[in-house]
Design a protein around this nucleic acid. Sequence first.
DNA 1: CAATCTGTTCTACTTGAATTATAACAAATT
DNA 2: AATTTGTTATAATTCAAGTAGAACAGATTG
Lengths: 126, 126
Amino acid sequence: MFIQIQPHSDTPIYIQLTQQIIEGIVNKDIEPGESLPSVRTLAADLGVNMHTVNKSYHELEKKGLITIIPKSGAIVNVPRKMGNANAEQLDYMEKMLRPVVAEGIVQGLGMNDFEKLIKRLMKTLY
Amino acid sequence: MFIQIQPHSDTPIYIQLTQQIIEGIVNKDIEPGESLPSVRTLAADLGVNMHTVNKSYHELEKKGLITIIPKSGAIVNVPRKMGNANAEQLDYMEKMLRPVVAEGIVQGLGMNDFEKLIKRLMKTLY
DNA sequence: CAATCTGTTCTACTTGAATTATAACAAATT
DNA sequence: AATTTGTTATAATTCAAGTAGAACAGATTG
């Protein structure tokens, strides 16, 4: 797989995993309808515990990105079309962005800088 | 002061503090040259430990936002002019933004959505 | 100058999250 | 029938976060 874990990072392993799987979905390394590896398999591949992977999968399910079928496996959901996020999702993203934007401003970034960064990231990720 | 701590949040107290002080600086509740309250005073006000506030202040110093004068106090630095962030700062912000943007994309946000959110946040914060 | 306030440093303790480690179970798959 | 699946439960370890108290030395203040 495309995932690399830094065991001694200050961001928890299950969050690193969640973020990288999200990038994998965005980047279409994993296509909608595909199954994720079983928690045991992925755990063995990454050298981490089964429960850590399980926790990550449930995070992804909370975010609506995968569906966990009990006793069977985890399947990547069909992604939303671009630009049709609902109000709830926009609120959620605003809360995520707020401290990042505040820090950006205080670091001297202007609207242009934010636009460039996001455009670049969208190209890189998408 | 303008700070409100949620003791049982999943984001650590010292990070809540750091973020809110950053917003205070951006929002000019605290002007450049002003002193922050002493670690003991602020800790007493917020009902948290001295060392927690101290940790937050040192985070702010790492970010270049305040200057801690040993045995004296902490002073808010003159902020950078808008739109003249250097390459290092842009790299740093790109790393901060990356997981947020990835999650935004997967939640259905398009470039327009990001622009609107950031414009709104900049108005709110600045 | 004396008293107070400052950040600093140190030790110690508690709490809880994160992670690992097994084990067992029942449903699904092969 | 055997294996694989996610689920659940228990237990242990590790470490960050937070609290607590004390002592120190420089800075500030009256």
